[in-house]
Design a protein around this nucleic acid. Structure first.
Lengths: 344, 344
DNA sequence: CTGTTAGCGCATTCAG
DNA sequence: CTGAATGCGCTAACAG
């Protein structure tokens, strides 16, 4: 309603020129006296500078395009929190698009964002295509990728391979030799392929009695739960869920069947958020700091915007969270820990 | 990089005037022959119309401002999913701002959004202030509120009072008379006040032997866990968490102490997402369809934009989810249900 | 320090 | 059906 008032109206009311008002708005030099008159005129008219006109001139939008695979997931939420934490104090705002886990949709979202004139783009990708690469290199606006890692592009991500490897090595150390990896389909490269491969390597490294079966599930509790019977049929000493959610679904199934964890079978996850600590037994897992990923990615984009950033392909540190769901086969059952505070 | 090409370049290459190109872009009449030439020129140059210039003329941004209290919460994620589901197919994009649970920050976010020239605003509010009201009524852009309900404003929300009442009545029906309501502080009006009041009314209605104690917690597992001892000190037959998270924290505490749920004490929550179904016992709760709230809010905003919507103050329907965590004191212990599929 | 003069890229009259 | 002309509201030289 009140966007009718323009810089011209203010200038008229203050008895100065448009440029003077513009200077007032943009830290240009202006005498204290006129400064005051302009201030008063702006207050009186309720003037708000027109965003589009301003951007048309300056070629800067202060807008960051953000492409996410989905909205209703803890990790995505954390990632967004991290992004907001960096961008927001600097006056950048986020333009949000959802790809629904489709690499094609990611691409079209990026194209759309480019047309909107965003200053930079962050895409939490499920898979990098050739078109991603083209856009990243030729669009003229900096693009940083989280979720996947691809040589030659700017990526900030969790070290999925490393996490898998760390878990594999840990479980070997606990004396396990028969594992089932319950994972998602290969459409998500990082989770579906790297994490799994890392686990395989870490678990079987230098050993010949270690076996790993693979059972495919979805990302949600229920689909994991539904595959639990298949998993059990492999007679594992440990079940490794590709995400905490998968592990929780399996834990529920085991509970229903009266199968004791970790006494009869061990279970681990990846993710490390609080939920894993409230179930019983609390889930041993690896903590992924997606908020940190968000912050790093944001900072990196900002650096690129400022021209002071070289190419980077960074993996965030991992934190192993040992809780109650793994049995040490070499020493028997672990002493159970009975305090949530120590596990969160 | 390729944003250099403007409508003028295309016109020149196609051998027509700028206006003709503009018409081509905006469904204006243009001969088939020139249509083809323009199409070719656009393809060749890789022309993308400049967003800001276009908006400067049309006064339409196709941008929806969205203000959220936080990012890392399931309900907020669901809400966003719902919004995206409606807005996205219509070419609207979301400009996202986070208020960090502060009503003041909400207001400044709204003001900022207004200045960006968004077509409409959705704010998931924690508390409505006088300034909210002013902005909603005088800013000239439609504003719909979720999360809170306020007379005279356009609100779409969960029926918090109704949910509380429903839960209260249910528990009375199960023969409970000593309850503890574990809730958050009153800064969140809907959760802190309405939900609690509804419960109080539903639980004590027409009875005089029913008592409800109140214990304050935060929104997270751990803070609820830390208050569990205080809660137990009240000797309740049932503990009512204001959110599922609160209830899960309490459930964990009870488990650690070996207190059987629901045999020794019952527990309920509010929210109804999947996590509550994977813990043991699975949590009896009330399902809030935040995704539906998002869809409704989006549609409502669209209707207002089209001028075909009257004022509205709508509450979404509730779904009672009976699982395993409540004991029927009139009939003894419920038969336990042993299948996740029936509870999700 | 300040006013004047030009556009930014596009949509839209208005005459053809 | 089409081209020429006119701003949308603002910033950035350019001379004062």
């Amino acid at each position: 309603m009140d966007d009718k008032v323009t810089i011209t109206d203010v200038a008229k009311l203050a008895g100065v020129s448009k440029s003077t008002v513009s200077r007032y708005l943009n830290n240009g030099y202006i005498s204290v006296e006129k400064q005051e008159r302009v201030r008063a005129a702006i207050a009186e008219t309720g003037f708000k500078s027109n965003f589009f006109a301003k951007r048309l001139k300056t070629k800067e939008s202060k807008l960051i395009g953000i492409v996410l695979p989905r909205m209703d997931s803890v990790s995505v939420g954390k990632l967004l929190s991290g992004l907001a934490r960096i961008f927001e104090p600097l006056g950048y705002q986020g333009l949000l698009l959802v790809s629904n886990l489709s690499a094609e949709k990611e691409v079209s979202s990026i194209e759309s964002l480019l047309q909107q004139g965003v200053d930079g783009i962050i895409v939490d990708s499920v898979r990098i295509t050739e078109r991603h690469r083209q856009l990243a290199q030729n669009s003229g606006v900096p693009l940083v990728i989280t979720g996947q890692s691809e040589a030659g592009l700017d990526c900030i991500k969790i070290d999925d391979y490393g996490a898998g490897h760390m878990m594999g090595a840990y479980l070997r150390g606990q004396g396990h030799s028969r594992a089932v990896f319950a994972g998602v389909t290969e459409t998500d490269n990082a989770v579906g392929i790297e994490r799994r491969k890392g686990f395989l390597d870490g678990f079987t490294e230098g050993e010949n009695d270690a076996t790993v079966d693979f059972v495919q599930t979805g990302f949600d509790f229920l689909s994991a739960y539904n595959k639990a019977a298949d998993i059990l049929a492999c007679k594992p000493s440990v079940i490794v869920g590709a995400t905490d959610n998968i592990s929780l679904g399996i834990l529920r199934y085991l509970h229903e069947r009266g199968i004791k964890v970790p006494h009869e079978v061990s279970v681990t996850g990846f993710g490390g958020y609080d939920v894993g600590a409230v179930v019983y037994p609390a889930l041993t897992t690896i903590f992924f700091d997606y908020e940190l990923v968000g912050m790093k990615a944001a900072q990196f984009l900002l650096d690129k915007l400022a021209g002071k950033a070289e190419h980077e392909n960074l993996a965030m540190p991992l934190l192993f969270v040992e809780r109650e769901s793994v049995r040490n086969l070499k020493k028997g059952t672990p002493g159970e820990s009975y305090d949530l505070r120590s596990m969160i």
